[in-house]
Design a protein around this nucleic acid. Structure first.
Lengths: 189, 189, 189, 189
DNA sequence: AATGAATGAGCTTTCATTCAT
DNA sequence: CATGAATGAAAGCTCATTCAT
C-alpha cells in the first residue's frame, strides 16, 4: 500500500521550512505539506495539535539551533571576525526575518494554547538579540564602533544585511566580506 | 438603508491600503472591506473582477504615485540631499516591502487574468529601481560613492533602511539623517 | 437552476425541530438539514453563526411560544381545568424534556458566544416552572392538593406525564383526562 | 511502559458505563476510554469489533443484571413492598432512560453488524416490562389497583418516577416511599 | 495479545464569487 | 448600478478503524 511506515520527523521539519518560506504563514496548509511528505493529512495531527503547533515547533527548533551557534561566536576576539562569524550563522537563513514576522502573526491570533510556545520562542529571539548587543558593545568599548549610534539600529542593520538576495551568485565568504565592509564603512569613499 | 449610492474610489483605495496593511494579503477579505466602506460585498465586483484585481489596482496606483514622486528627486543636485529626498518618498510607506512580497504571492497563484496587471506593476518597480540606480551612479561619477560597490547592493540597502522600525520614536527628519549617515559612513569610527 | 430564491425561515425552524428530535443534539448536522431544505450548507451560515446558534434560536422561539401559551392558563379558575389546560400546552410537544436536556448539553460546551442566548432560554424555562408552581400552590391553598408534597416533585411529574408515548392512539383529550386523573388520584382504588 | 498486559473486563465495563453517562452516546470516544483504562486504543478492537459493539455489550450486561434482580422481586407478597423493591432495582440507575434512548439511536444507524445484539437487548427490555406487568396485574387481581387503568401507562409511570432528580438530597428509602405514595394515591387530598 | 502509527471519512466553518432582482 | 442571497471549494480538525510489528 501507499502507507508509509513512519513519518520522518527530520523530513517533516525540512518540508515545513520549505513550504513555510514558499507560501508564508497564512497560506501554509496541512494538505500540501502532507502531500509532499506522502502521508495522510490527519497523520500530522497525531503529532501536532494544529497548524500553529507545528509551525511553533519548527520555529522553536530553528531558533534554538541558531542560539547555540551564536554562543560560539562570543568566544571570537577580533571584532571584524566576530561580526563575520555572527552573520555567517544566519547567512544560509536569509528568511529569518520572515520567521520573526510569523511569530508576530501568531501572536495576533490569540490562541491561548500556543501562548507558552510563543513565549519560549520570544525568549530565544531575545537571546539572539542579546548576543548581537554584546558584540556591538564590545566594539564600542574597543573604540571601533561609533558611540553615538544606537545599538538597536546597528543590530537591526546586521539582520537586514543577510536578507539581501544574492543577485551576483557570489560565494558566502565573498558576501560576508562585503557585508562587514559596508556595515563598518558605508558606501562613501 | 444605510446604503451608499456610489462607491467613492478614493476612499476605496485608502481603505484597501489600511486593511491590507492591517491584515496582510491572505487575510484581506472583501467582507470586512465592504463593511468599512458601507457598501454591499457584491458591489465591489462591479468594479473589480476579483480580489486580486482590486489589490493589483491598489498596488499599481501606489507604485505609480511613488514613481511620480521619485522623478522629482532626480532634479536635486547635492547627493546627500538627493538620497535623503529619495528615502523620504518611502519613509511613510515602510510597508513597501510587504507590498512587493504580495506581488510575489500573487504571481504564485497562477491566475492568468491578473498576469497583465502584475506586469504593469513590475514595470513600475523597475522604474523605481532605475531611479535609485541613477542616483547611485551619479554618486559614483562624482567620486562620492565607492566604485567597487555593487549598485544593486546599495539600492537594496536603501530600501532596507526605511523598513527599520522606529524604536526611539524619532521624527522622520532625524531618522533620515541617521539613515544617510549610516549609508555613507557605516558604523565604524 | 437548483438555486432557491429564498430560505423559508418558517420551514427552517420546522425542519430544525424535526431533525433535532430525530437525531438529538450531537448528531444534528448542517449537512443533513441543508439537504432537506434544498439549500447549500454554507447558506445556513449566512443566518446562523454556527450550529449552536441555530439550535439556540430554535429552542428560544419554541420556549417563548410556550411561555405565552402558559400565561393564558393562569386565568382559568377550576384547578382540574387549569392543570388540563397547562398540560395541553405541552402535549403536542412531548419532546420538551429532550430540548431541556439539549440546553444542558450546550452549556457544557463553554462556547462563550452562546452564553447569552442560553441565559435567555433558561429565563424562559424558569418562567414556565414559575407558572406550574403557581398552579400547584393555588391547588394547595384551595385544599385540593396535599400540603406535604413537594412543589418541585409535582411540577416535575406533570412534565413526565406528557412524555408518555401514546401507545393506544388515544385522542389528546382522552389522554389529558387520564393524566389529570392519575396526577390527582394515583393508581390505587 | 505503562502498558497493561491484560484488559480487565470488569473495569472495562465500569469505565464504559461512567464515560457513557458522563458524555452520552455521541461523545463517547475510544480515545478517552483507552486512556482511562491505561491501554492502547487499538487494543479495544481486539475484543469489540467497533464502538457500537462495545456499547451494546455494556448495555446488554447492564440489562441482564437488572433482569436478574427484578426476578427476585416477583417473590415478594405485599404489593406496596413489591413495587418499592422493583423501583429500588432501578433507583441507582436513573440513567436507564438514557440508555434506552441510546439503543434507539443505534438502531437508527443501520449498522447491520449490531442488529443481532440490539435484538438481544430489546428482548431483555421486554423481560423487564413483563415483570412490571406481572406486578401491576397482581395488584389489579387483589383489587388494589384500578382496573380501568392501562398497564402500559402504569408501567411507564413507574420508570418515570425513578428519573426524577433528587432535588432535596433525600435518602433512597425516603424517595421510594414518596414514589409509591404518589403512584398509589396521586397528589389530591 | 497488545500496540503505535497511519489514515479516510466526515464535520464545522470561512470566503470568493455568482446571480436574480 | 447596487445589492441580498446563495453557494462551492477548501481549510481546520476529530475520531473510528485498520495494519504491521
Amino acid at each position: 500500500m501507499a502507507r508509509k511506515k513512519k513519518i520522518d520527523h527530520q523530513e517533516l521539519m525540512i518540508e515545513t521550512e520549505k513550504l513555510l518560506l514558499e507560501t508564508g504563514y497564512d497560506s501554509f496548509h496541512f494538505r500540501l505539506l502532507a502531500e509532499r511528505l506522502g502521508v495522510g493529512r490527519s497523520t500530522l495531527y497525531e503529532y501536532y495539535a494544529n497548524k500553529d503547533d507545528l509551525i511553533t515547533a519548527y520555529v522553536h527548533s530553528f531558533a534554538y539551533e541558531r542560539v547555540e551557534e551564536c554562543k560560539l561566536v562570543l568566544g571570537i576576539d577580533d571584532l571584524q571576525d566576530q561580526i563575520e562569524a555572527f552573520l555567517r550563522v544566519f547567512l544560509k537563513y536569509n528568511h529569518i526575518q520572515q520567521i520573526v514576522i510569523m511569530v508576530t502573526q501568531m501572536e495576533g491570533q490569540k490562541k491561548p494554547q500556543n501562548e507558552e510556545s510563543i513565549l519560549h520562542i520570544k525568549k530565544l529571539i531575545k537571546d539572539i538579540n542579546a548576543i548581537s548587543f554584546q558584540i556591538i558593545q564590545k566594539g564600542k568599548r574597543e573604540g571601533k564602533i561609533r558611540q553615538e549610534l544606537d545599538d538597536m539600529f546597528i543590530s537591526y542593520m546586521m539582520f537586514n544585511l543577510i536578507q539581501l538576495p544574492n543577485f551576483r551568485q557570489q560565494s558566502d565568504e565573498e558576501r560576508l566580506k562585503q557585508f562587514v565592509d559596508f556595515l563598518l564603512n558605508g558606501v562613501s569613499t
